[in-house]
Design a protein around this nucleic acid. Structure first.
Lengths: 196, 196
DNA sequence: CATAATAACTAATGTGATTAGTTTTTGCAA
DNA sequence: TTGCAAAAACTAATCACATTAGTTATTATG
């Protein structure tokens, strides 16, 4: 009965590879165990079942996002920040489709740790938008906006939702520019009656 | 051995209710059979296994979208069209979260019928954007843009991605206005060197 | 009224998650 | 060094779900 010396990071790493290569669906205790050359019940020594494995994947994904984005935002100011953030977001989703998927499917509103990890990423988006001089609720709406834009694009791209043979990088750049132009205009208009 | 008289539409209807109420994950042959008061193998008389059931759900979802959007676009012209389309999109996703999910997870690039049904919906978005006088590739990028915006918002809203107690309808309106303002500006700028 | 198609069924198999209980290694303290 | 406790792996067993094969009864149609 040889002992592998498996630990949680190794396990998550293997699961990440599976997810990124074959989609989150393909990450089962059975497939992961096979990849790690152990029997699936042995995984319970490291992880509390499949839901917990997915949760760990989501956490790991959020941490990696934070790290990547922090790196990408170094030395960026003003309008550069949003673009740097956005391209880093796109790059992450492309490099880690499975991990990105894991992050999306972890809504558990009562999971403190997960909420905080997600909050850190959102906060980076908030900061990145600061150069636009938005205030109060407008700023919050804008963050929701950029999140929608980024997630929407990334998500449609990943699932092959864009059929046409038209350069996706161009679409992304235009989309981002369009949204940011709109933000500028809207900001100018601000102060009128936009409640309810 | 009583015969229920089940048919495909009834079956899809029941599956839709399950999906909308408990999420697409909850639609299993077992749960559907239970809801319909039959044994799960009996479902194979109407549907070719779980993948086929999901496919039928996606098709049904796309048809309903087409119908709803057609209805919403009646009598709309110019700039009104995009907004009408967008609000109809939002309304559908809110009313049928499970069906919306089913539509998203049906990428099969070799499924002609599914591609066509999806194409019809995309075509409606193309038409809705026509009032903006976009030409050629720019128009295609714009359609990808509005799709990203709509899907991104709807998707984040559905999974509770927006934590704050800030009115989601307002966010949606602002997001849409912002993007469309951006489109106007970008359209004005068009004609310069934006290839690659 | 007879029969063919159909819609339901039961039985059985396979895969994956999970639990219980066992064995062996390993780390640490006497 | 020896011995023990915790941990990491295991086997065996159960449960849920999907799927297939083969059976039976109903319905529709000639």
């Amino acid at each position: 009965m040889p002992r592998i010396g498996l630990d949680l990071p190794t396990l998550i790493h293997a699961a990440t590879e599976l997810a990124d290569a074959q989609g989150l669906e393909a990450v089962t205790l059975a497939s992961l165990a096979q990849k790690l050359q152990i029997r699936s019940p042995s995984l319970y020594n490291h992880v509390n079942g499949l839901p917990d494995l997915r949760r760990q994947l989501a956490l790991s994904g959020l941490e990696q996002m934070t790290e990547q984005f922090t790196c990408a935002l170094e030395d960026k100011t003003g309008g550069d920040s949003v673009r740097a953030f956005s391209y880093a977001y796109l790059a992450f989703a492309r490099a880690h489709p499975g991990l990105y998927e894991a992050v999306q499917r972890a809504p558990e509103p009562d999971d403190r740790q997960l909420q905080e990890a997600g909050g850190r990423v959102v906060q980076m988006a908030v900061n990145a938008l600061e150069g636009y001089g938005l205030r109060g609720d407008t700023a919050l709406h804008a963050v929701r906006g950029i999140r929608s834009v980024l997630h929407g694009f990334v998500s449609l791209e990943r699932q092959g939702g864009f059929g046409l043979p038209l350069d996706l990088d161009v679409t992304f750049r235009l989309l981002l520019d369009t949204f940011l132009e709109g933000v500028k205009v809207m900001q100018t208009k601000a102060g009128e009656g936009q409640s309810r």
